[in-house]
Amino acid sequence: MTLDEFLSACRQLAADAPAAIAVAQSPAEFADVRTQLVGRKHGRLADLMAQLTTLDAEHRRDAGRAVNDVKAAIEQLLAEREAAVAAASRTTDALDLTMPSRARWQGSLHPVTLVIDEICEIFRELGFTIALGPEAETEFYNFGALNFPPDHPAMELHDTLYLGKDTLLRTHTSPVQVRTLQQYAPPVRVLAPGNVYRRDFFDATHAPSFMQLEGLAVDEGISFADLKATLGEFARRFYGGARRVRFGPSYFPFVEPGAQMDVEVDLGDGKGTRWVEILGCGMVHPNVLEAAGLDSERYTGWAFGMGPARIAMSRHDIPDIRLLYDSDVRFLEQFAR
């Protein structure tokens, strides 16, 4: 190859380059055109460089300078074009607003907590505050003060886990009734949510430890009509306005009269409405008031107890109570919102 031919090839390359570079848009296209023009191995510039050796020695310096000039010009064109494309993309679609946010993990409350919270909120609207008591209790607070006759079949409704001879894990939240009445003078209007224990096998419908929610209202002149009105109002606020409730006979040693409240619910299974028992209730037994040092002639009251876990299971279609305890994050995260 003569020097003229070589220089002509250089000019040709310099002339072709702007058109090739002008069509590049994406980083991949820039990479392609760069390789094609000035790539080290197979680019057109590399081909020219390979021809350098075929030139006469005295022409090589000029030829080399020409090649370097072309290369510099192409690199400059590439850089300008890249900057222009980047600038254009910044002005037109700097943010793809369809892309997701930089989110944080969502925390969640347990479904049973959600039920307890809702119930507590409703009773708070009705003038109730929150009382708590210990889970490890004495037989006196768990049974004796609550009018359980010693050695009576009523105790068998409460399979008890004992810690010592007369100490146990409370079988219901009702001991909080007595503790609260001993500590605060009427009027008393409290809710007592808490963990309770029964000597039950852990299966799909039973657990040896579960949440219970107790309510207590004691003052002068409190009647069964107040109980019916307040619990009925609760049911309407919790389940929705048109709910019917009914009261039937039941037995708990610490209330007299004792009753249970059923609510008419539609479980959405196409079978229409049905009555579901949601709580046990009654007028506080005079012996319970007396055990707490209150004059049962002067004061009367009502109390109720319910199991929020059953309500949670029913409203979320949770088929197995163990899901509430397993702590599988895929279960718990379903209650994040």
């Binding site: 505050t129 209202a217 009509a225």
Partner: peptide, 13 residues
């Protein structure tokens, strides 16, 4: 039996 909400005194607790 009746079930009318009656006035109540706020609790001390």
């Amino acid at each position: 039996l009746p079930d009318v909400v009656q006035p109540f005194r706020p609790g001390t607790v």
